[in-house]
Structure formats: C-alpha cells, structure tokens
Design a protein around this nucleic acid. Structure first.
Lengths: 139, 139
DNA sequence: AAGACGTTTACGTTGCGTAACCGTCC
DNA sequence: AGGACGGTTACGCAACGTAAACGTCT
C-alpha cells in the first residue's frame, strides 16, 4: 500500500472538488465527457486519485485562464499526450544515436588493437609497410 | 510571379469568405484574434492567400465539427505547429542515426582494407598471423 | 451613384458552470 | 434522521456568429 502512489484512488467527490477548487457537479460533468475517469468505490461513489486532482486543476487552467471550452480541452489533452510520447521517442533516438557513435569509435579502436595483436613478427623477419620499408614492426 | 505559390495573397475578403464558406465578419474577427494574418492591399483591404483559406477551413473544422471555441483553436494550432517541428526533428534524428550506422560500417571496412593494403610481403618472406602460420598473404 | 471595402455596435443561439430538486444508502 | 452520495433539470452568463448601421473610396 503505497501512500505516495499518485494514482491511488483516495478522495470522494466532495474532497476532490475541494482540492481542485471546483463544483462537485462540474466534476460529474467532466466525467461524463471523459475528461477524468475516477475509480468507483464498492458503493458506486467516485474515488479520485491525486493524479485526477492534478488533471482537474490543469483543466481548470485551460478553461478559466486560457478560456478553452471542453471540446478544446479534450483536443489539447490528446495532443499533449501525443507530444509527450514524441518527446520520449525523441530522447530514445538521441540516446541511440549517441550510443551508436560511441560504439563506432569503440569498434574502430578494437579493430586497430586486433590487427596490432595479430602482427607478431618472427625474429629476424620484417614486415613491409607500403610507402616505406624499415626494419621494425609498427607497433 | 508564381501562380502556384500558396502563400501568394490573391483574394479579397468577399472571395476568401466564399471559398472558406464563412461570413466575412467572421474572417475579420479571426484576424483580430490572430488566427489568420491576411496581407493588405495598398488600399488597406485584406488579401487572403490560398494557405490562409486552407487555414480557415481547418479552423472551421475545429469549431463546427469538433466544437472548439476560438481559444481552443489558438492553442491547438500552436500545439500542432510544435508537433510538426518535433516531427521534423524526429525525422532528422532518424536520418542522422541511419547515416551514422552506415558511416560506421563504411569506416570499419575502410580500416580493414587499409590494413590489408599495408601488408605487402616481400618475396620469400612470410607474415605471421597469430593462431596460424601460412605462406601467402591473405589478400 | 453603386458597390466593395472598412469599423463599431447590437442581437440570438449555444455551451458551460451552478443551483435546485429528488432519490438512495449508510 | 441526517448527511453524503447519485442523477436530472433549470437558470444565468459569456462567447461566438451574424446582422445592422454607417463611413470611405473608386
């Protein structure tokens, strides 16, 4: 039982409406329009989580301060959800890119090292390097 | 003078309102709210581009079909603009990632080739490769 | 002078928040 | 029985689209 889980349904409508500073009827309206989805108690009374309350406050911001109507709120919430997933995807790609570049340099170094390991000159012999010929190996 | 430039201001308000199937006053209202920004003729009459008209039709879709109010339309247009730029960024990153991976394999191949080029045995001599020793070069 | 443009103001409809009313269950 | 929940209906206000009124320019 995690008391810090913001998704845990805790408040009935009177408490939630007070926390969100809204009329209880407004909360019921929002639910019918699908803007919030409070859980239900055994006796069918609504139970709002902290997350629900925060969502309500955000909706209030959109309606009161920015003047959106509910249709607009719905659309905006949808879009912001999409944007959030895009942001995640973007971060994922960015990390992947960084990873790929690190990997590339590591791979290159590994190949160099591997070639140098494989070139073991026998005593008295010589390895010729194109463009110049010297006695010792280039280790 | 590009007739196909959708940004070219062409229509005065009567024509634009007809194309967008809206009341001329509505177009003026939208301009005051910053939803469309038609250019002006020398005599201060509004000139709408094809792009403006399309934007108007989109706004109409948002208001009439989805029921948004103008505040909502503003916000949605903003968000969709942001999403568009995110989409571009995402494509850019994806391309960059692909490019980086291609580049890495190319680089690896190049290093292999370079090492093989450098190993030219003198006649009668031998290059020792760790784990097996044979006569000829592995070209 | 007619017709298109401009602006400002007024009006009707609609959406939304709130309240009122009523029923049900601890 | 009172107080919280649930639902439905009613009302007031504000937003938005449209129209009206009026001026200017060609």
């Amino acid at each position: 039982v995690d008391i810090n889980d913001r998704r845990k349904p805790l408040f009935m409508i009177s408490v939630a409406s007070e926390l969100a500073d809204m009329h209880p009827q407004t909360l019921r309206m929002y639910e019918r329009r699908g803007l919030v989805r409070p859980k239900r108690s055994l006796k069918q009374s609504r139970l709002y989580s902290m997350e629900d309350v925060e969502r309500l406050r955000y909706i209030q911001q959109l309606t009161n301060e920015l003047g959106l109507n509910l249709a607009g709120v719905e659309r905006v919430l949808e879009l912001e959800e999409q944007m959030e997933s895009m942001r995640r995807e973007l971060g994922r790609l960015q990390a992947q890119l960084e990873e790929a570049m690190m990997d590339a340099t590591r791979q290159v170094e590994e190949i160099h090292r591997s070639y140098r390991r494989e070139l073991i000159p026998l005593p008295g012999r010589e390895i010729v390097i194109r463009g110049r010929r010297g006695p010792g190996p280039r280790c």
